[in-house]
């Protein structure tokens, strides 16, 4: 741990400082507020501001995912769940507050104890930045001909991690399917409508919303595919594209109703897609196995030139990831909107 690196202070540190200040404000606000709606919104703002901070820390891919997943999909999911619960949380009991305060203080002290030996911020000779990280930067281009080193490390060098991660998403989708089911009957009878949609209000044609989203939805899907195939050259890849395309379908469902969305993207297709993506990913690995090399080795996919084989392998697993992520996000959305207990005004 070389201790003689001094972090230079320049214009960007001011921006970092302000972003950190915002994060602290939002964090403390979440602690103090008890209105669940405000907490959900603040959680979205928190992950958005941390996405900004990631951009200033050169982590562009991570900022992309954090903005798409943390600020976008999580807010819609939280709303879906919050819809079915009361709006204000009970304040925590004092004894519990103090107990958790001391636990937190102890953990924080353990971390602060470790700060003194941590390499200073931005030090190029620190252990993480000078060893395997640099080796990746040097080898990624000749090995895989993919400029975006994060995509090549994600898909090829540490491709097995990403297979595990895609299976985590599949497990979550499976879990939501098992716990909530995807619509249709709830213990035998069709979902009770919370509000009878035939009253005058529901006939309101939000023409403005309908026209705008009709224009927006194809653009969003197109942008999703751009992000997917642009993933090798800039920020992007299977996860982000999957989330974007899923949010396009969610927008369609929000405007034209979940039944219309279920007609467009039926639950069966979504269920197949969730499983298909993992099978594509695993299958690419087994293809490497069958062609005689180790698991998840893409060099053998194209006998003529190894880097091209790598590109082929990375492309196919990104498509697998896209299908799984998109389908699971829809499974989760269908799951939440399929449960519809009526909400008494007491909670509202």
């Amino acid at each position: 741990m070389n201790a003689d690196f001094i972090t230079p202070l320049d214009a960007f540190t001011i921006i970092d400082l302000i972003l950190m200040l915002m994060l602290l404000i939002v964090g403390l606000a979440i602690v103090r507020l008890n209105d669940i709606f405000a907490i959900v919104m603040l959680a979205g703002v928190y992950s958005l501001v941390s996405a900004l901070w990631f951009v200033s820390l050169d982590a562009v891919d991570v900022a992309f995912t954090e903005a798409a997943v943390g600020a976008g999909i999580s807010t819609v999911l939280m709303l879906g769940a919050m819809l079915l619960s009361s709006r204000t949380a009970l304040p925590a009991k004092p004894v519990r507050k103090w107990a958790s305060f001391f636990i937190v203080l102890a953990t924080g002290a353990a971390l602060m104890y470790a700060v003194t030996d941590m390499p200073s911020f931005g030090d190029p000779l620190s252990a993480p930045n000078a060893y395997v990280g640099l080796e990746y930067l040097k080898r990624s281009l000749p090995d895989t001909e993919i400029p975006n080193v994060v995509s090549s490390v994600l898909a090829s060098y540490r491709g097995y991690d990403t297979l595990g991660e895609t299976s985590v998403i599949l497990t979550a989708g499976l879990g939501v399917m098992l716990i909530l089911g995807m619509g249709g009957k709830i213990n035998g009878q069709l979902k009770k409508k919370a509000i009878d949609y035939d009253n005058a209000d529901a006939q309101a044609h939000h023409t403005v919303l309908r026209v705008v989203s009709k224009m927006m939805i194809p653009l969003i899907v197109l942008y999703g595919f751009y992000v997917q195939f642009h993933g090798d050259f800039g920020p992007g890849g299977g996860f982000q594209a999957g989330v974007i395309i899923a949010s396009a379908v969610i927008l369609y469902a929000l405007i034209f109703g979940v039944d219309a969305a279920k007609a467009a993207v039926p639950p069966l297709v979504v269920r197949i897609g969730a499983a298909l993506g993992v099978l594509i990913y695993g299958g690419t690995g087994i293809a490497g196995l069958i062609l005689g090399s180790n698991y998840l080795d893409y060099n053998v996919l194209d006998p003529h030139s190894a880097p091209h084989g790598q590109e082929l392998g990375i492309m196919s697993i990104e498509i697998g990831v896209l299908i799984t992520v998109c389908s699971v996000m829809l499974v989760i959305f269908y799951g939440f909107t399929s449960r519809q207990p009526d909400i008494t005004d007491k909670d509202w």
């Binding site: 499976l174 197949i272 499983a275 690995g285 087994i286 180790n294 698991y295």
Partner: peptide
């Protein structure tokens, strides 16, 4: 020779198939 990954990958890929 390829047993180590197959030990984990067989149940991992069999899971999605079992869904159907």
């Amino acid at each position: 020779t390829h047993a180590p990954p197959l030990v984990v990958v067989t149940p991992l890929l069999a899971g999605p198939i079992a869904v159907f």
